[in-house]
């Protein structure tokens, strides 16, 4: 709109120069947020759908790792070279973070001594239900953890 108004004034002068500059600057100020708004954000979806562990060489067999899935922790256990177990690491009792006890081959919660077997089933202590399961898929030396479809 502004450009058309300027067109009506034939005189070329400094004033018009400034008005052009500030109009374009202003337009950029308007367009920039809109363009960045439309640019797809890094996380594509509302919900986190997967999480990756790429450096598997550091992940020894028999070790466990806690990874972040949104704001929920997931415990990943490397059972065999190509066998991974991924379970929610939030204890179903009071939401403490559980840990893997290699010597007893269980998942253990330090807060109230809750115990789960490696399938996530609550086997002892206060936890009222099993840990939620996640799916760990090995692909090109990268571990992808996704939600289990119920």
């Amino acid at each position: 709109m502004n450009t058309t108004t300027q067109k009506k004034i034939p005189r070329k002068d400094f004033f018009k120069y400034i008005i052009n500059i500030s109009t374009s600057a202003f337009l950029i100020l308007i367009v920039y947020p809109i363009v960045s708004f439309l640019k797809p954000p890094k996380q594509r979806e509302v919900e986190v759908s997967d999480v990756k562990i790429s450096n598997l060489d550091d992940f020894a067999i028999g070790d466990s790792k806690i990874v972040r899935f949104g704001n929920k922790p997931i415990i990943v256990i490397r059972k065999e070279k190509e066998q991974f177990i991924a379970l929610s690491a939030a204890c179903t009792h009071l939401d403490c973070t559980v840990q893997y006890k290699k010597d007893e081959s269980i998942i253990w919660c330090a807060c109230h001594n809750g115990k789960y077997d490696l399938t996530g089933r609550n086997i002892s202590g206060p936890p009222p239900r099993p840990l939620d399961k996640f799916v760990a898929t090995l692909k090109n030396n990268e571990l992808i953890i996704t939600k289990a479809s119920s």
Partner: peptide, 13 residues
């Protein structure tokens, strides 16, 4: 929430 936190200028819009 996603618009507000993840999308650039989402909060502004």
């Amino acid at each position: 929430k996603f618009i507000m936190s993840k999308v650039e200028f989402g909060w502004l819009i």
